[in-house]
Write a protein that binds this DNA or RNA. Structure first.
Lengths: 190, 190
DNA sequence: TGTACATCAGTGAACGCGCGTTCACTGATGTAC
DNA sequence: TGTACATCAGTGAACGCGCGTTCACTGATGTAC
């Protein structure tokens, strides 16, 4: 994770990993069949962290208004990003990175998460009559906005600390716009 | 571009580039000081294409309703993605890729584009009284949605051709939600 | 409690290979007078 | 029109290096009887 925080996974070598782990290169094969194998394991481990994070963020979404909960979720997400910076750097970088197997693993996990969020959204009184497809489209949009905030935060942290509050504020406004739109979308359905 | 379409820029070698160009490795230095130098040049060239693309997509935005134009822009964008697939793969991959200089170049260009879009939005009658900051936040959200559509399309084209229309439909719904939200946001201002 | 064997993480030498970069060079094209 | 020189893209040999992977090995820990 330390190695992969700053550079693309495709550019790190088996020998670097072994060196970092304090073992001889050949001993690597006792643990993983190949670097690709290691990469997929890294995705799975990081995703476990990410999904726990986001589930925490949505824990009390049900039976409340969507908007204040969304702001709360964003704050929780960004706190977890700080606590698990390397994992998030890895995920953001490899989401569209050079290794197909890893991209697919990340994509699968993100899809699962959107579906979970869609289920949570369906429990909101205002959205109770929505079509499942629309709920998922909306959930994917929210995930996209949140992920963009995470990526922006990580890419820009060489600048001052004011950057974070700027990103948070922008993201909150975007979430508000989306929730307002969802409100009117619903009214179009009936 | 051919080399960089499938793999991360950080993982391709100077000798591969020379081989692809049909010259001897040493002759590379006649053209670029380093691989990083080449990478930045590639970003600039690709971005020229991207900005032309998107400017085309917004050409007749002014004086029309935002929504039909947005759908039209999306269609134009995706057509250009097909025509310049390698460039877009490169940009999507390296936007959060392993080389800081390249990330920064892409980020700068995307920011510029959001500002251009914000100016176009300000010309819409419905948005005439918006604060500049809100216009930019909205423009960035639209850019995020469009870029996500491009990335999804490129990452998923190993699947059937039905994937594209699925992505287009989802993206259009998301844009509708955002524009509906923008409409209500505006009404909050006055 | 003692003996025999299996499992398993790690070792270290060795291999052939592609890498970035140096250097002195060639030969075609452009420019000055 | 001819001569002299500069520029410039490309050449090819050579270097030292880190790479992934092979192989036979060691020695500690666990398991069976």
């Amino acid at each position: 994770m330390q190695l992969v925080a700053d550079r693309s996974f495709a550019s790190i070598s088996l020998r670097e990993v072994a060196r970092g782990a304090g073992i001889v290169p050949t001993a690597f094969y006792r643990h993983f069949a190949s670097m690709e194998d290691l990469g997929v394991t890294l995705v799975e481990d990081s995703m476990r962290v990410l999904r726990r994070t986001l589930r925490d963020g949505r824990r009390d979404l049900a039976a409340r208004q969507a908007l204040p909960t969304a702001q709360n979720s964003l704050a929780i997400l960004l706190r977890h990003v700080h606590d698990n910076e390397a994992q998030f750097r890895f995920l953001v970088r490899e989401q569209h990175g050079g290794i197909a197997e890893i991209r697919r693993a990340i994509d699968t996990e993100l899809r699962l998460f959107s579906k979970e969020l869609a289920i949570d959204l369906s429990r909101l009184p205002d959205l109770a009559q929505w079509q499942p497809e629309d709920l998922e489209v909306a959930a994917e949009l929210i995930v996209t906005i949140m992920l963009t905030a995470v990526a922006d935060l990580l890419d820009n942290d060489y600048r001052g600390p004011g950057v974070e509050s700027e990103i948070v504020e922008r993201t909150e406004r975007q979430l508000v716009m989306v929730f307002l739109g969802m409100g009117r979308w619903r009214s179009r359905e009936d």
